[in-house]
Amino acid sequence: MANFNLDEEVRLFTSNADRERYDELATLYGIIISLDYLEKAYVRDSIPQSQYTPACSRLLAQFKTIMKLVGDSVPNLDAFMTEYRMDCTAAAHRIEVGVPATVEHSSEEGVEAAKWVAETTQNFITFMDALKLKLRAKDQLHPLLTDLMSGYTRFKASSEWEGRPKILHWLITLNQMRASEEITEEQSRQMLFDVEHAYSEFFRSLSSSK
């Protein structure tokens, strides 16, 4: 019979790769739980639409990012939730729909504008997360920044926003690079700073226009 030392720490991993995998799975778990709480808070009117929509868009974007990282470890959301006995039907529905409830249930008149806001928010967050995850190559960043710029410029007021020329500058910079070339650490930090500033300005402008 094996002897167990009850004072010995149980390690889930034996290598850095295993540790990263468990960290990613823990992040996925946390995102699902947070999204479930957010959905229930919205249904109960415990959170206003102005706070719910960007928070939900951020979590959905983070979910998409982490699912790319976990890869084959998580074949699908249902399998993950079953394995870890997660009763998060509200989160599962929101992930399946892919947009915040404010977009899903918008009036016909406002649904397109609400959809643009949600998509642009997700594009911002996806790109910022990519930089934080240390993606540096042109072929990794250029498609994400192109999606961001396409959604961003749908808003007529964007021509007056300070963030627009900065995003355009980085898009041009990436355009001039070869697919395998990478930006420097200094460029990445400045790019993240500029995009975060543009993201904040984006929401301030939307709020002031209401």
Rank of each mutant, 00 (worst) to 15 (best):
T153L: 13
Q190T: 15
D18T: 06
L38A: 06
K132Y: 05
G151F: 03
R85H: 09
V97L: 06
T14P: 00
T27P: 00
P165R: 04
I31M: 07
T65C: 05
A17P: 01
H93M: 06
D147H: 07
L77M: 09
L133A: 13
N5T: 08
A114T: 05
L35F: 05
G151Q: 01
L69F: 00
I66T: 09
I31Q: 05
N175D: 15
L12N: 09
D7C: 07
R154Y: 10
A91E: 06
G110K: 03
Y22D: 08
E185G: 00
A79Q: 14
E160C: 02
E119I: 09
A55L: 11
L192Q: 09
A41N: 10
T121A: 14
A179G: 02
A198E: 03
E96I: 00
S200G: 07
T146S: 12
V10T: 14
A137Q: 15
R94K: 12
T126R: 10
L133E: 13
A17H: 10
T53C: 01
R58N: 12
K132E: 10
K166E: 11
D7P: 00
M177W: 09
Y42N: 11
L28I: 10
L59K: 05
L59F: 08
L192A: 13
T184S: 15
D194N: 11
H93N: 13
I31P: 04
Q49G: 08
K138C: 06
T120E: 04
